[in-house]
Design a protein around this nucleic acid. Structure first.
Lengths: 151, 151
DNA sequence: ATCGCTGCAAAAATTTTGCAGGTAA
DNA sequence: TTACCTGCAAAATTTTTGCAGCGAT
């Protein structure tokens, strides 16, 4: 979708909040970080560090810088890490007011991804936590199957 | 626990089924594979390939052999692969008659693991599959929290 | 005697780290 | 100016692969 007046101002607002969060922690808004956030914003699905690297103008920043940036952004709660079972971590931008908690339905043939908002009842998690004396329990849940095109 | 009469015969029965499955596929029962199966049988929790390697008598087999064996055993449905989010795959033996589907509650401090049999209602999965036109949908679910000892 | 399997070694893939210099604030 | 950050290069991890010889059936 092309950026028209409304979405443009929306983006600027989002940007300012994100960079503001960085500034609060005495972190710097550098060109690699701005580029990473921009790429994550443009892609609705989890990206590997190599995906992000490939999406950049050639030589715009080093792959190691992306790894370092993702650690920082993850610690700050600005991105969420996902694991699809192949050997590479994937990251998604966490929207404002959003805790980033959602799941994915992944095609095991073409690797296509659908975002899933639905989750199981939280009582199940509470019960499991209580039954085992665990605190601060969260979960990771991903679905795998064959998408319509690949069937 | 030492093997007494009953558990010994039980083990032999289990062993014969496992090795039988191997034989059916024209695969060979070698000493590394027997050792791997024995270690998996003795450990109730998912093990990394390095864990398995470390649990062996020194030099009993090569690490590459373990990687190759785990691929084979996974293809044959004899072990199940789990992913706890650190960069290493983990494997558990699948019991007979068991499809191996269960989950884990993992302590993020000490990495302790509790097996969880409980799962969410399967209608949730069916609904997600149907809503997106996916077939053969499965899921991976792991819980993370702080165990009683680490709190 | 096959054909599969293993050890060894090298390579591939992902991620981390040290360091000297550069840059946002 | 002063931390923080980056690029480059090297290293650490995890996993895969080629090949010659060994071993289960």
């Amino acid at each position: 979708m092309k950026a028209h007046a409304h979405s443009h101002s929306h983006q600027r607002q989002k940007m300012s909040v994100l960079t503001g969060r960085l500034r609060q922690q005495a972190r710097k808004i550098t060109s690699p970080r701005a580029a990473i956030l921009e790429i994550l914003r443009q892609h609705p699905h989890p990206l590997t560090n190599k995906d992000i690297f490939a999406a950049m103008a050639k030589g715009q920043c080093d792959l190691a810088t992306i790894y370092r940036a993702m650690h920082l952004l993850e610690e700050m709660g600005m991105v969420k890490r996902f694991d699809f079972g192949d050997g590479a971590a994937r990251f998604e931008l966490v929207g404002e007011g959003d805790d980033g908690h959602h799941h994915h339905l992944i095609c095991t043939r073409c690797a296509g991804v659908v975002e899933i908002e639905e989750c199981f009842p939280s009582q199940i998690e509470s019960r499991i936590a209580a039954a085992n004396g665990f605190k601060s329990v969260t979960h990771k849940l991903e679905f795998f199957g064959i998408c319509p095109e690949c069937q």
